[in-house]
């Protein structure tokens, strides 16, 4: 039976790696891997993910094969050699402490820049130190995303603000800052295709920022449990050219200001 069990344990790295390879390389199956990234700053996250995947993959395969090999070779039913009566090896302990420690420390320090870019370095206005003002304020509440665009005057809280719900439009190829707020409980603003996620804490002033490089329609997902309707907080992110965005914003504003009504088929 020992052979059977050894092989069972060998299946772990084999099938495990196989599944990852099939999904990542899209062999016979699509869209079961990282979704498309359209944020210029998101690329580094994907690269880091893959780097860690290769590194951990190597360790996974190596330890899996070692486990299999030792079980196969030292199966008491088949192994006639006496047990190796050792209590350890100082050299090995040193080696396999220092090498992982160095690797882990390297990974940690290597990615600090990416973290700072994503969470600490808000874009500034071109040519100055002034922080870029938000294009839109997204207020999360149970269970929707309420939007308020600063409008043409780029100031929040004036008469030309455009209000909306769940339908977020953003111009492409520009640095964008979004102010995020919560009206009631914790929510989390998750844009899978932009690799953006930020928990929204009621009472705090928070921002996310990105620069998208491709037009398209993508999901907005709430990523922090906010009640029974957590799953209902679907939003839609539409990234379009600046011109199309301006046209859309103007349309929304005009719809918002409709001031007369003729019933259909009125006499």
């Amino acid at each position: 039976m020992g052979r059977f069990w050894s092989l069972l344990f060998l299946l772990v790295p084999v099938i495990g790696v196989g599944i990852f390879v099939v999904c990542a390389a899209e062999i016979g199956i699509e869209d079961h891997w990282l979704p498309e990234n359209v944020n210029e700053h998101g690329r580094v996250i994907d690269d880091l993910f893959m780097f860690i995947l290769y590194l951990t993959g190597i360790i996974f395969i190596a330890t899996g094969i070692a486990l299999f090999w030792f079980l196969w070779k030292y199966d008491a039913a088949k192994n006639v050699e006496p047990v190796k009566y050792v209590h350890g090896s100082h050299t090995l302990e040193v080696v396999w402490s220092i090498v992982p420690a160095a690797t882990l420390l390297f990974i940690a320090i290597y990615q600090m820049n990416a973290w700072a870019d994503a969470k600490m370095r808000r874009p500034t206005l071109p040519g100055s130190d002034e922080l870029l003002p938000p294009l839109v304020e997204v207020t999360a509440r149970q269970f929707e995303w309420r939007l308020r665009y600063a409008g043409v005057d780029q100031v929040m809280g004036t008469d030309d603000d455009v209000f909306g719900v769940n339908d977020l439009h953003i111009p492409v190829d520009e640095d964008i800052v979004i102010a995020i707020k919560s009206k009631d409980v914790l929510h989390s603003f998750f844009l899978p295709n932009l690799r953006i996620k930020q928990d929204i804490v009621p009472g705090m002033k928070q921002h996310v920022w990105f620069k998208s490089n491709k037009k398209g329609v993508y999901d907005i997902v709430c990523a922090e449990l906010c009640g029974w309707g957590h799953y209902k907080m679907k939003g839609r992110l539409t990234i379009s050219s600046r011109d199309d965005f301006n046209i859309w914003l103007q349309e929304q504003y005009e719809n918002q200001e409709v001031s007369e009504f003729e019933p259909e088929g009125s006499e």
Partner: peptide, 10 residues
């Protein structure tokens, strides 16, 4: 369907 209130312009 035809009973909506008519709203004159502001």
């Amino acid at each position: 369907e035809g009973a909506s209130l008519e709203i004159p312009p502001a």
